[in-house]
């Protein structure tokens, strides 16, 4: 009961934050609000017992991406331009998509249902075989690092490449090189 109330309050604040992000034109405030948005979703993940996901959300959403967005603001503009066209059609598209997604969740199994298809397929094997196969007591660790080791390696490579790309873009490497060429000429 208490958990449900907490989840509902957190979701209400999440929706209010999202509405504020849409309403505000000062991009700096939007960046701060998106930090709050990801802190709130991290809290929701903690409430759902997904602590590792919550930590990633807080580190990436509230930490790194806030700073990256600030860097983008410094390179572009500080306020959003007023929309010239009416937002009616985008609103209808978003509303229909949202209703379809909510309709899709109606068929899903309940939260924590042990007979859900997702926990019937290979999960029992992982749960029983983790200690015997891999000798790691923590099942999440054994799945991420061993059963799905190549998958995790690929993900890490993707994130690493993306990080290097953003760093190169924001460091002004091209700009500096152009200045050097101008000095040489």
């Amino acid at each position: 009961m208490v958990a449900t109330v907490i989840t509902v309050i957190l979701f209400t604040m999440l929706v209010l934050t999202a509405l504020a992000i849409v309403r505000i034109y000062s991009l700096f405030a939007v960046v701060m609000l998106s930090g709050v948005f990801s802190l709130l979703s991290a809290l929701l993940f903690v409430a759902l017992d997904a602590v590792d996901v919550a930590f990633t959300e807080a580190a990436v959403g509230a930490g790194i991406s806030t700073v990256l967005m600030l860097g983008t603001i410094a390179l572009t503009a500080r306020t959003q331009k007023k929309a010239t066209r009416s937002g009616f059609v985008p609103f209808v598209v978003v509303a229909v998509t949202g209703v379809a997604l909510v309709y899709g969740t109606l068929d899903m199994p309940n939260f924590g249902d042990p007979t859900a298809p997702a926990s019937m397929h290979v999960a029992p094997e992982y749960m029983t075989g983790s200690v015997k196969d891999i000798d790691v007591a923590n099942v999440v660790t054994s799945i991420l690092a061993s059963y799905r080791g190549y998958d995790t390696l690929g993900e890490t490579a993707v994130v690493f490449t993306a990080g290097i790309g953003v760093l190169v873009l924001l460091s002004g490497l091209g700009r500096r090189r152009r200045e050097d060429e101008e000095e040489d000429a």
């Binding site: 604040m13 209010l16 934050t17 504020a20 505000i24 000062s26 405030a29 701060m32 609000l33 709050v36």
Partner: peptide, 11 residues
Amino acid sequence: MVMVLTRLYAG
């Protein structure tokens, strides 16, 4: 949290 959110919105 609600009070902080209000301040964040109002500036």
